[in-house]
């Protein structure tokens, strides 16, 4: 498999929510690529649009939200019987969100792991029934075979006694076990892209370590790409190879993980990195906090949405013009006028 093959290309994505109080620009210009087998992190604070990005890709943006502009190109690779691969290109934004084609992709080729395993699993179906539903929907197998595969999948994600847990209900399992069940469900159809939306946020650190280890192993074994949506820079540093940083619906910086942590360019990324207390570093007296608060989504400041909080604010520039994406070096972009040529 060629690692440089594109799997997903997002260009100028805009997803708006049309509410009575006004229009919320949840995503207002997101550009990024995901290659095959790659782990990409999407990081940002609450309300920055990172979860809606995942929902837009799967076309499950809740009402009254809508993808209004942009492209999400998904590259499907199919192995022929003679061993060659054929590539098919699908524009996900052009599909009917309730149509057959997106349904065959959703859960089959792109699947999702949600943050809260208690609210995103059905309380009235057993783990097995929920995993089998996905298998039967996407693969042509009978119920016995689906059950066999469900048990196999549960064993793969480290569920103890998979033959009996397959018949347990989510409330009978602990948080970590439920998240394992959800991962088993997401992986049951061998997707080429897994969207993990805060997969460990609701878990304790020792359980989080188990789940992250599991996801790392599965990614290597199954060769799938993972899009990690999280606010935790620690998870980003440990799990991903490329990162995009979002602020108020915009991708403000994109780089490989080492560059992002050691040579960040956008003032927001820098401020974010300086505001976290770190375990391995010497205890400094004060944390650098970002002044002010996230702006009101109904009433975004003109120009760069970060300018009211920015340490490098340039009056007359940042608060006037819309900021384009500047390429700093190949693979490293920042949406900031500091890097205008």
């Amino acid at each position: 498999m060629n690692d440089n093959q594109l799997l997903l290309k997002v260009r100028d994505l805009k997803t708006y929510f049309f509410l009575e109080e006004g229009t919320v620009h949840a995503i207002d210009g997101a550009d990024f690529d995901i290659r095959r087998g790659e782990a990409v992190g999407v990081v940002g604070e609450s309300g920055c649009g990172k979860s809606v990005t995942g929902q837009s890709i799967l076309r499950i943006v809740p009402n009254p939200g809508e993808v209004v502009e942009g492209e999400i190109t998904f590259y499907r690779y199919e192995k022929r019987d003679d061993g060659t691969e054929v590539q098919e290109v699908v524009d996900l934004t052009a599909l009917d969100p309730r149509g057959d084609e997106i349904r065959s992709i959703r859960g089959g080729e792109i699947s999702m792991v949600f943050q809260e395993p208690m609210t995103s699993l059905s309380p009235v179906h057993t783990m097995g029934q929920q995993i089998m539903e996905a298998i039967i929907l996407h693969q042509k197998v009978d119920e016995d075979e689906a059950r066999r595969r469900a048990i196999e999948m549960l064993r793969r994600v480290g569920m103890p006694q998979p033959e009996s847990t397959v018949d347990s209900y989510p409330h009978q399992l602990s948080g970590g076990m439920r998240q394992r069940g959800m991962i088993a469900m997401a992986l049951s159809c061998s997707p080429s892209l897994l969207i993990a939306d805060e997969p460990t946020t609701a878990l304790d650190v020792t359980t989080e370590a188990q789940i992250l280890q599991l996801m790392r192993d599965l990614q290597q074994d199954l060769g799938m790409a993972i899009m990690f949506i999280t606010h935790d820079l620690g998870v980003i540093a440990e799990m991903t190879s490329r990162v995009v940083v979002m602020y108020m619906g915009k991708v403000v910086e994109g780089a490989d993980v080492d560059t992002l942590f050691y040579d960040p360019k956008h003032p927001y990324t820098r401020a974010l990195l300086n505001s976290i207390p770190r375990l391995g570093h010497d205890k400094s007296e004060r944390l650098e906090s970002i002044k002010g608060v996230v702006p009101d989504p109904y009433n975004l400041p003109p120009g760069c949405p970060f300018h009211p909080r920015c340490a490098s604010f340039m009056p007359g520039v940042c608060n006037v013009e819309e900021v384009p994406n500047f390429v700093i070096e190949p693979g490293h972009t920042a949406r900031c006028f500091l890097y205008a040529d």
Partner: peptide
């Protein structure tokens, strides 16, 4: 517990103790 915390440093050694 301390080794479980994901460290915000991509160059950190990843010798974790998984309980």
């Amino acid at each position: 517990l301390m080794s479980s915390v994901p460290k915000p440093d991509p160059r950190a050694t990843k010798r974790r103790i998984i309980l």
